[in-house]
Simulated assay, not measured.
Amino acid sequence: MAARYTPRLIGAPNTLEHRIFVEQNGSVVSPWHDIPLFADQNSGILNMVVEVPRWTNAKMEISKEEPFNPIKQDIKRGRLRYTWEDPASSHAETKARGDNDPLDVCEIGEQVGYVGQVKQVKVLGIMALLDEGETDWKVLVVDVQDPLASKLNDIEDVERHLPGLVRATNEWFRIYKIPDGKQENQFAFSGEAKNKKYATEIIHECHEAWRRLVNGESPAKTPNYELSIRNVTLKGTPGYTEKTDPAYTSLPQDSRRPPGPVDPSISKWFYISSAQV
Rank of each mutant, 00 (worst) to 15 (best):
N14M: 04
N14V: 02
E17S: 13
E17V: 05
E17N: 11
R19V: 09
R19K: 15
I20E: 00
I20W: 01
I20R: 01
I20Y: 03
F21S: 01
Q24R: 15
Q24F: 00
N25R: 09
N25L: 02
G26H: 11
S27M: 10
S27K: 14
V28S: 03
S30G: 08
W32Y: 15
W32I: 13
W32R: 14
D34E: 11
D34T: 06
L37M: 14
L37Q: 15
L37H: 09
A39I: 02
D40N: 15
Q41K: 15
Q41H: 12
N42D: 14
N42R: 13
S43G: 12
G44Q: 03
I45D: 03
L46T: 01
L46D: 07
L46H: 12
N47M: 01
N47K: 05
M48Y: 11
V49C: 09
V49E: 00
V49R: 03
V49S: 00
V50M: 12
V52L: 09
P53R: 05
W55L: 13
W55A: 13
T56P: 07
M60C: 10
M60E: 09
M60D: 11
M60G: 05
I62V: 14
I62H: 06
K64I: 03
E65A: 12
E66A: 13
E66M: 12
P70T: 00
K72P: 08
K76V: 06
K76H: 08
R77F: 05
R77W: 09
R77Y: 09
G78D: 03
G78S: 01
R79N: 13
R81Y: 02
D86N: 14
D86M: 08
D86Y: 06
A88R: 13
S89D: 14
S89N: 12
S90P: 05
S90M: 13
